[in-house]
Amino acid sequence: MSKYKVTPVDQELKFSSDEIIVTKTDLTGKLLYANDVFCRLAEMSTEEVIGQPHSVIRHPDMPRAVFQLLWDTISKGKEIFAYVKNMSATGKYYWVVAHVTPTRDRAGNIIGYHSNRRAPSRAGIADIMPLYRELLAEEAKGGDRKAALAASTGLLKAKLDAIGKTYDEFIWSTGEANV
């Protein structure tokens, strides 16, 4: 990605349901591998993305609480599914359903992470957007970043507790279940 701050634009990039975005990272989220679908949607070359933090494609419309949940889950050795809105080098956006898993060495130690992403259903995106808007509003209320993240994370937990589902269960109860 460019050294300059990318400004989001309201133009969606799409990829087909038979394509899979694949990336591998180290323990800190630095990209070690990115397939051609990832590079095409990120609008960057392989050379530009390798060695960059995976957050190089982070869209500001993504609640930090979702990434906190993702990192908390995978660092414990568990997998997670998540809706993620990403941003290309030109500011365009694209949605994915990410499946992130730890990568382990022969001794079972976590040595990095592997993510496969597919194109989500339109119904799934419509189902997740109200929650993400609420989380973003909570994060924008002010205060320091740490307090805002804690408030948003608390709201996410409360929302999931209220419906009696984990985040993964919520994902699969949305329009995504119809894929």
Rank of each mutant, 00 (worst) to 15 (best):
54 H>C: 05
41 L>A: 02
73 T>Y: 09
80 I>Q: 14
103 T>N: 01
112 G>D: 00
31 L>M: 05
130 P>Y: 11
128 I>R: 12
129 M>Q: 12
124 G>D: 10
144 D>Y: 03
83 Y>G: 14
121 S>G: 11
122 R>K: 15
94 Y>V: 04
104 R>W: 05
122 R>W: 15
52 Q>W: 04
69 L>W: 14
112 G>P: 02
45 S>G: 03
143 G>Y: 07
107 A>C: 11
115 S>M: 05
40 R>L: 04
116 N>M: 15
69 L>P: 08
121 S>F: 14
49 V>R: 02
104 R>F: 08
56 V>A: 15
68 Q>F: 13
66 V>N: 06
113 Y>V: 01
34 A>I: 00
137 A>S: 09
102 P>G: 10
109 N>I: 12
118 R>Y: 15
130 P>E: 13
83 Y>I: 14
118 R>Q: 13
47 E>W: 08
66 V>D: 11
137 A>Y: 03
87 M>F: 08
65 A>L: 00
134 E>K: 07
79 E>G: 07
110 I>G: 00
96 V>A: 10
131 L>W: 09
43 E>I: 15
73 T>D: 05
130 P>F: 06
88 S>H: 12
69 L>S: 13
51 G>A: 03
77 G>L: 12
48 E>G: 05
131 L>A: 07
81 F>R: 09
28 T>C: 05
28 T>V: 11
114 H>D: 10
43 E>R: 15
90 T>G: 03
140 A>W: 04
115 S>K: 08
